[in-house]
Design a protein around this nucleic acid. Structure first.
Lengths: 237, 237
DNA sequence: GGATATTTTCACATAATAATCACATGCTGT
DNA sequence: ACAGCATGTGATTATTATGTGAAAATATCC
């Protein structure tokens, strides 16, 4: 069952030999390939279909590749990521291709592996798979891009510093994070006079743990704190 | 008015001559540039700062560029678009760079204009500027080509800056947009002396929220603002 | 050039958050 | 059991962030 698709790709290219080679290789990498040999067909497919990425040759029978690109972006208003793959290698070609709305530009002759790597990068970004915007520990979910925090169904409100501390703990979970580490990340080198962190940890715990039956935030004497879902019933030194 | 920023870019590069050249050119194109000459500084800036794009050299004093990239993606979990700019030109270098999480890879020596075009493409995609002409959040609809704005049946009139801010917030909805981010997109790096944004946010809120029962514009202390329709039901504290 | 619209600046109000403190509780090794 | 330190608890105070509204400065339009 390992045959999940790596993504669907439309290749618009009039050289059959190159097209075949690309399709074959990409299919070997689990992409679902579609193929158009001329601009009109290509544009039509690009508008109607739902591809993760387009690979576009610039010199096509029918419509010129740049025109196609322009139409797709400005008229059809599709924002499918586009990689231009062409023999045109002058600076101006690259500039106008990227300016018209392409996301990447690769010059022939090219390494097929590089093509695949660039396509993968485009898909990865499109899907937002780079850095998941949510951190999760147990049933605690922190969406760092909306700053929403919830445990199970309940929304939780924390203060800015509380959130910062929580983020650090979630990032390092299930490891122990030392007080000093937290302090340094929050305040840098000039720490407050008093042991403020204690209060913050108290309030953090009040927010994320007190209303719930299972504790996530654990104190490790003399070491620091750790955020973890599992119980330590097994721990019995 | 006039000096809108094209985006903020962090350049991590240990060759001062290249760095100077790049910064100078990019600033000429209205980018706000920041610069780190070694890996540690670069990583720190990348994690704490809030850039539209990173340009990363692979051979750095301190941390290796690939390590930096990995840490940024996997530990700090930042998804800032990254363009690798390096003299390493083997296929394997490119593959591992892209695989580790880079979005683009440009080999030295390079054309500065191509670098700029690629950076621009990354920012364009990140900001979703190919977005549909009508933006919608809840019952708030903004037609960006006619500049018409309405909430439900009611037409709303805003000032130019108000509209710009609103557009930024709508494009990124439901995400939090930091004040700094908004300020940079409106004023570039020469900000007004006073905290003008506050007034604008006040007026924006007056325009789009005050006459209506459901709030769309939410303040997130110490982070920024976000525009969302759905609201937090029950909160605990 | 004067009317109009927009932006910036300011002063003050309010809300939210952080620092500090005093005391309570709990753990650790002898 | 005890001393000594580490951490929890919660209230109080200080500080900071943001909201509010108007007035001054600036740009824009005819």
């Amino acid at each position: 069952m390992g045959t999940e698709s790596a993504g669907s790709v439309l290749l618009i290219e009039d050289h059959h030999d190159i097209a075949d080679m690309v399709c074959e290789f990409m299919e070997g990498c689990h992409y679902v390939m579609d193929y158009a040999a001329d601009g009109v067909t290509g544009l039509h497919l690009a508008v109607t279909g739902d591809y993760d990425v387009l690979i576009l040759d610039l010199m096509l029978p029918g419509i010129d590749g740049l025109q196609l690109l322009g139409k797709l972006r400005n008229e059809a208003r599709r924002d499918t990521p586009i990689l231009i793959l062409t023999a045109r290698d002058t600076l101006d070609d690259k500039l106008s291709g990227l300016a018209t709305g392409a996301d990447d530009y690769l010059v022939k002759p090219f390494e097929i592996k590089e093509l695949e790597a660039r396509v993968r990068a485009l898909i990865r970004r499109q899907r937002g798979q780079l850095a998941p915007e949510t951190l999760q520990v147990g049933d605690l979910v922190f969406n760092t891009s909306t700053m929403e925090l919830r445990r199970g169904a309940a929304a939780i409100k924390l203060t800015p510093i509380g959130l910062k501390i929580l983020r650090i703990l979630m990032q390092r979970s299930p490891r122990v994070v030392s007080r000093r580490d937290i302090e340094r990340q929050i305040w840098g080198d000039i720490l407050p006079d008093s042991d403020t962190l204690r209060s913050h940890m108290y309030n953090l715990r009040k927010g994320i743990d007190r209303p719930f039956p299972v504790q996530l935030l654990h104190t490790v004497q003399n070491s620091g704190y750790r955020l973890v879902a599992i119980d330590e019933k097994k721990q019995r030194h």
